[in-house]
């Protein structure tokens, strides 16, 4: 027993004690590798599309992820058309926001890839025509005058439209022709027979339009309501007369339908097959529910929320699509 003498046997005892206690500590400090299943939903969602709808989608996504921490949403601002063509129809994103309805060509493209878009209305925008803060003379525009301002080869000076206005050249600032806002404005104001003016400063960025308009008393421009709502002092919104008197753009006038023809629906399109995944379906539902939320849609982003009835009808559209895929 004591063949090795006292020293080594003590060492061995110490060694065994050390190994034993380390092993005990390890066993006590062990835990299961299985994933804790405390969140019901998990997965990724990609949203592409219109830069106009982007702030709304961002706000909804942020809110959704507070409720479902295991869902990861990324939002890309690509423009309505760019989103359909490069992201949504090839199947790279599950949602595509659009500030105009999907075109037949885009529907075909999606169809070729087996993506079926479900259209959901998520808010209403009041497209806002703005003028310089010093341009007091520009206190109202009829739709016909607006059409003349933005027609190709139209009048070159303000006086040529209305002789009370100054004899100065019109300076135009507006969205680029890749934008859904451009498409909607052309359709609603210019119609089939007029082309959109070529002689203007196109940009994708609303605050560049504002800077342009701030630079000259004889400048005008147009963009989505959200930017004006968040920066009401930078430029002046011009009331629009569609035959029933001058109406200023606001959440109220767009909601009760007085602000025509420039209030427009904003959409998101969801790929029908993607709805089979529970987290996508739940997000679509949440998006529609939030589209009626005054605090989120109007106060935070600056669009007109859906009415209660609109929310209900959109939910029915969604539930019908959900029935089909499940």
């Amino acid at each position: 027993m004591d063949r090795d003498g006292d020293g080594p046997s003590l060492d061995r005892r110490n060694f065994l004690a050390g190994v034993g206690s380390a092993g005990a500590a390890l066993v006590a400090g062990c835990t299961s590798r299985a994933k804790k299943d405390q969140f019901e939903l998990e997965g990724d969602i990609e949203i592409s599309g219109s830069s106009t709808v982007f702030p709304l989608a961002e706000a909804v996504a942020e809110q959704f992820m507070i409720n479902y921490p295991e869902v990861n949403i990324s939002v890309k601002s690509t423009g309505s058309g760019g989103g359909f063509e490069n992201h949504f129809c090839p199947g790279a994103s599950q949602f595509n926001n659009a500030s105009r309805a999907i075109t037949d060509g885009e529907r075909d493209l999606c169809g070729e890839n087996g993506v079926e878009p479900i259209e959901l209305t998520v808010a209403t925008d009041a497209l806002t025509v703005v003028a310089n803060n010093n341009a007091n003379w520009l206190d109202c525009l009829t739709v016909d005058e607006l059409r003349q301002v933005w027609s190709r080869d139209g009048p070159e000076t303000w006086a040529a439209i209305n002789e009370d206005w100054p004899d100065e050249p019109i300076k135009r600032f507006g969205p680029a022709d890749t934008s859904g806002t451009f498409d909607y404005f052309r359709e609603a104001v210019l119609g089939e027979e007029h082309d959109h003016a070529k002689d203007y400063e196109p940009t994708e960025k609303d605050n560049l339009i504002v800077q342009g308009v701030q630079g000259s008393e004889f400048a005008t421009g147009y963009f989505g309501f959200s930017y004006y709502y968040n920066n009401p002092d930078s430029v002046t919104a011009v009331p629009i007369d569609d035959g029933d008197g001058c109406v200023e753009p606001s959440v109220k006038t767009a909601k009760n339908g007085e602000y025509t023809p420039l209030s427009r629906p904003l959409f998101t399109y969801v790929a029908k097959d993607a709805l089979a995944e529970e987290h996508v379906a739940e997000f679509a539902r949440f998006y529609i529910e939030q589209s009626g939320n005054q605090e989120l849609v109007a106060d935070r982003v600056g669009y007109v929320p859906n009415t209660e009835a609109a929310v209900q009808s959109q939910l029915e559209t969604l539930e019908a699509a959900l029935e089909e895929v499940s």
Partner: peptide
Amino acid sequence: GAATTVFRPPTGFASQ
């Protein structure tokens, strides 16, 4: 086509 807004850090090489 990198995302404009992601709310979570990437967790792998295939993350947005």
